[in-house]
Amino acid sequence: MERQIVESVQQWLRDVVVGLNLCPFARKPLRAGQIRYKVSDTRDDEALMAELLEEMQLLDSTSAEELETTLLIVPHHLQDFADFNQFLELAEWLIERHDYSGIYQLASFHPDYQFAGTRPEDEENLTNRAPYPILHLLREASVERLLGNYPDPESIPANNIRRVGGLTAEQKRQLFPYLFARDR
């Protein structure tokens, strides 16, 4: 089961994140094998917080050349997006509490991801929709370096919205099968 979960996340990363160029910085660590895929078996916030801290500590003890980033995949917990969104506040608190502010940055993905001020069906939400809830730990130094070398990084979100907005219904079904496999 864990292998299938990781494979579905890897496919999403290849086909959606890199394939649509939603994150222009993801291609290199994907190709170099510098992404850790950690599947969490937890079903409660406290245990998930402990796992998130362990992943930050692992990044601490591993060079960026070996491990650039971690995707903590949460298939059995935080299925409701409101619960997931609330958990993100705890995760940010954890980062601050352990003096990881400015060291690690948290990005988040969820099958029902919804940006503030949008409706669930708005296409822009597709940019952060993944097969499972995912807590993505990024190295702040790497993000800053990449953004400094990228022309017009402020245009990335608008470009992403245009990309997903330009997808046909069939392309959406192919790229986001998990969104169409369940009752929505």
Score class of each variant (00 low, 15 high):
Asn21Pro: 06
Gln114Glu: 14
Val164Pro: 00
Gly117Met: 01
Gln86Trp: 02
Asn125Gln: 07
Asn21Cys: 02
Glu144Thr: 13
Glu140Met: 08
Leu53Thr: 05
Ile103His: 07
Leu72Pro: 09
Phe180Asn: 02
Leu53Ala: 14
Val16Ser: 00
Arg97Trp: 06
Gln34Cys: 08
Met1Pro: 10
Arg36Ala: 15
Val16Asn: 00
Ser108Met: 03
Tyr113Ser: 05
Ser40Pro: 12
Arg36Phe: 04
Glu92Lys: 11
Ile95Asp: 11
Ser101Tyr: 02
Gln11Ile: 01
Arg31Val: 09
Gly102Asn: 07
Thr127His: 03
Leu48Arg: 03
Asp152Arg: 11
Phe115Cys: 11
Gly102Cys: 08
Ile5Ser: 02
Asp45Phe: 03
His77Leu: 09
Leu72Asn: 05
Val39Asp: 14
Glu89Lys: 13
Phe115Gly: 07
Leu147His: 03
Gln34Glu: 15
Ala64Glu: 15
Glu154Trp: 10
Pro133His: 04
Gln11Arg: 14
Phe81Trp: 13
Pro133Thr: 03
Phe87Ile: 09
Asp60Cys: 04
Asn125Trp: 06
Gln105Leu: 03
Phe115Asp: 08
Pro157His: 05
Val164Ser: 00
Asp15Arg: 00
Gln79Asp: 03
Asn149Tyr: 01
Leu94Tyr: 06
Leu13Ala: 12
Trp12Asn: 04
Phe180Leu: 01
Glu7Leu: 05
Met49Ala: 10
Leu88Ser: 09
Met1Trp: 02
Arg173Leu: 12
Glu121Ser: 13
Gln171Leu: 01
Arg129Lys: 01
Glu7Ala: 11
Glu66Gly: 03
Arg184Met: 11
Asn128Thr: 03
Ala130Cys: 07
Ile103Ser: 09
Ala141Ser: 14
His136Cys: 06
Arg3Gly: 06
Asp183Trp: 07
Trp93His: 14
Glu2Val: 08
Ser61Arg: 15
Leu48Ile: 07
Glu154Lys: 15
Arg162Lys: 12
Gly165Asp: 07
Tyr100Arg: 05
Leu146Thr: 06
Trp12Val: 01
Thr62Asp: 11
Leu94Val: 11
Val143Asp: 07
Tyr37Phe: 15
Pro153Phe: 10
Ala64Ile: 11
Glu123Met: 09
Glu54Thr: 04
Pro75Glu: 02
Ser61Glu: 14
Gln105Val: 02
Ser40Tyr: 10
Trp12Pro: 01
Thr70Asn: 07
Arg14Asp: 00
Ile161Gly: 02
Val16Asp: 00
Val164Phe: 08
Arg163Gly: 00
Val18Asp: 08
Arg3Tyr: 05
Gln4Asn: 12
Tyr37Pro: 14
Ser8Phe: 01
His110Leu: 14
Ala181Pro: 04
Ala141Ile: 06
Tyr104Gln: 09
Arg14Val: 00
Tyr37Trp: 15
Ser101Val: 11
Val143Gln: 10
Ile103Leu: 12
Arg36Gln: 12
Leu53Tyr: 14
Ser108Thr: 12
Leu78Ile: 05
Asp41Met: 12
Asp44Asn: 15
Pro120Tyr: 06
Glu51Asn: 07
Leu22Gln: 04
Ile35Leu: 15
Gln4Glu: 14
Leu48Ser: 08
Asp80Phe: 10
Val17Met: 00
Asn125Thr: 03
Leu52Val: 08
Thr168Lys: 13
Leu72Lys: 04
Ala82Thr: 12
Pro111Ala: 07
Lys28Phe: 13
Leu167Gln: 06
Glu68Tyr: 02
Thr42Ala: 14
Pro131Trp: 15
Arg162Val: 03
Arg173Ala: 13
Ile73Cys: 10
Val16Trp: 00
Pro111Phe: 12
Gln10Ile: 00
